[in-house]
Design a protein around this nucleic acid. Structure first.
Lengths: 109, 109
DNA sequence: TGGCTGCGTCAGTTGACACTAACGTAAGCG
DNA sequence: CGCTTACGTTAGTGTCAACTGACGCAGCCA
């Protein structure tokens, strides 16, 4: 999760992810679409792979990459988890509001 | 969007976001829950604010912060957009598969 | 007004990261 | 085998970001 979030925070990696989202592509093909060198793309692919956002398949000397949508789905689930937590905390604060209605001057916590 | 994604890629900022998700909190209170200094938290808050993930409200010498869920909602929408694109591209590749069925040796693009 | 509180801002440092150039490696071909 | 192709990996560099300590500033109270 942490890794996935960090991975998609990088614009170049998001583009790569889009490229291989539903089309399997060899590393060279991917690198060819960017203005940077192949090693750079190779490292991005490694980051994406270790983040569980792409899968690698070998075919001779080539390495085919393809997106792994489930990886992104985890990130999505994490985001939605924020809203779930919000409901729990809303209940807490609602209960506290009922108990004491002093409007909180300077006492912290 | 870019900023929001980068902002939540940082663990500390995700924690801050959770803290103020539905409870408005002064900067000092937030800083007190972490092992880092106040300036560090202050900078994180600035990043979050500029990313549209929190709002700032002043009350005397204090600065109250609160999460802005719509900011995260945009990120969520972006992620879901990936799946939408996937449908479009699927149609493309399906049409190409119908037209010519040569299985693509080495000619790129 | 002097002094305190609550925060932000400013240098300056350290560490992470995106990148390049050079090298290493596995697969296929003559 | 030697050569080429298609990669990944390594070492090194520049840049950005997270952090600390020192300072500055607005709001409040005596």
């Amino acid at each position: 999760m942490e890794d996935a979030l960090r991975a998609i925070a990088e614009p170049r990696r998001r583009e790569i992810l889009r490229l291989v989202w539903n089309t399997e592509l060899p590393a060279g093909e991917i690198a060819g679409r960017f203005a940077v060198t192949r090693p750079a793309i190779s490292q991005h692919l490694r980051v994406l792979k270790e983040a569980g956002l792409v899968t690698e398949r070998r075919d001779g000397t080539r390495r085919l990459y393809r997106a792994r949508p489930e990886g992104l789905a985890e990130v999505r689930a994490f985001l939605e988890g924020m809203w779930d937590d919000s409901l729990e905390r809303l209940k807490e604060s609602a209960e506290r509001a009922q108990k004491g209605r002093n409007h909180d001057a300077g006492n912290h916590d």
